[in-house]
């Protein structure tokens, strides 16, 4: 399964090559052109169906290849690795996790003090990253340095697997779910009514950096960002809404911290979903940020919207998503791309 290989590939922000190679292998036969830009974005083009004289409209769909994780900052005399975070991670999710260090995937464990040795006070404290270390089994600095080095990226060693109810678990669904959906979309049809730029971006998790330059280069007329997004649908004490609901369908962003979705595109998605009976939901406004936050500001501005697969426990070593949401996102977008010309100003 495509989502499985994407999820198990390692590609932290700034080090997306492994993921990019995997994607490139999948899409090469599906697109007319592709290139890798100076920051490492993979920009693919699937040409439109019509051969009319007018300049074809350009639609950009972005999904980011990078994932959150850690980076080795220091090697102790004892051989243990100190690290810092790459992207937003909660310290509480790190202890006792199995990790893979460097491109050679050297296995290690983020050590935790056994409960027997914890002082009463420590039981109520969150251990912060700078107190943690990674144990790769070595016992001296020299021995460690033969296997890994300072600056190596550290990914979680989470295996993908199926759960009950059509759910799956794995790591990096934010945003490998988006990458997989974009690949499915490129696979779905020979062509769409507009030139479709499928863009697999870098460095989203550390500030939407890849999308900025990719959108500048592509100069799209419309843009969509595919995401794996926050889902907190577990029971709550107060009557407050979850950000998204697992199994509730493709999650459409109205507004988040990085942008306001274009109202015409939101309307197009909603009407398309309702006409075709595709389940959809609105993501709770003003939560999170996506590549759309940069794309919509490119050059003279680009009408943009984000559509996402809800993922429980994102930005942690293990996430859960519902395959039905994934399929609904692909279905909704493939229909919406066909309906998109209704938005074009009449000549």
């Amino acid at each position: 399964m495509l989502l499985q290989s994407l999820s198990e590939a390692c590609g932290l922000s700034g080090n997306e090559a492994e993921v990019r190679n995997l994607i490139l292998k999948e899409v090469q036969g599906l697109v007319d052109e592709h290139r890798i830009d100076s920051l490492g974005n993979l920009i693919t083009l699937k040409r439109c169906s019509s051969t009319g004289a007018a300049r074809p409209r350009r639609v950009m769909i972005a999904a980011h290849m990078d994932e959150v994780g850690l980076m080795v900052t220091h090697i102790e005399k004892s051989g243990h690795l100190r690290f810092s975070k790459v992207g937003g991670l909660d310290d509480r999710t790190l202890l006792s996790k199995v990790v893979l260090v460097g491109n050679d995937r050297v296995p290690g464990v983020i050590g935790a003090k056994p409960i027997h040795l914890l002082k009463e006070k420590e039981r109520h404290q969150v251990v912060e990253t700078d107190q943690m270390y990674i144990d790769i089994g070595t016992s001296s600095k020299e021995e460690t340095e033969r296997a890994v080095k300072r600056g190596d990226y550290v990914a979680f060693a989470t295996r993908f697997s199926r759960l009950e109810g059509g759910l799956v678990k794995g790591k990096a669904f934010d945003d490998r779910a988006g990458c997989a959906a974009l690949i499915e979309l490129l696979r779905g049809r020979g062509s769409y009514p507009s030139d479709l730029y499928g863009v697999f971006t870098v460095q989203e998790e550390i500030g939407l950096r890849g999308a900025r330059v990719a959108a500048y280069a592509v100069e799209p007329d419309y843009a969509f960002a595919f995401e794996g997004t926050v889902c907190d649908d577990l029971p709550k004490k107060k009557d407050l809404s979850p950000t998204t609901i697992l199994g509730g369908g493709a999650a459409i962003t109205l507004a988040d911290r990085s942008f306001f979705a274009d109202k015409r595109l939101v309307k197009l998605l909603v009407e398309t979903a309702e006409k075709n009976g595709v389940p959809y939901q609105f993501k709770q406004p003003m939560v999170g940020a996506t590549d759309a936050g940069r794309i919509h500001l490119a050059r003279e501005g680009v009408p943009s919207v984000a559509v996402a697969v809800p993922c429980r426990y994102i930005h942690s070593p293990v996430n859960i998503l519902s395959l039905s949401d994934f399929e609904n996102l692909v279905r909704l977008m493939s229909l919406a791309l066909v309906a998109l010309p209704t938005l074009w100003p009449s000549p």
């Binding site: 009557d239 407050l240 809404s241 109205l254 507004a255 709770q284 406004p285 003003m286």
Partner: peptide
């Protein structure tokens, strides 16, 4: 403000 949630009693929660 932007409405983020409408509760059972008809009150609106919001974000700035």
């Amino acid at each position: 403000i932007i409405v983020t949630h409408i509760d059972e009693k008809g009150f609106l929660r919001f974000a700035p």
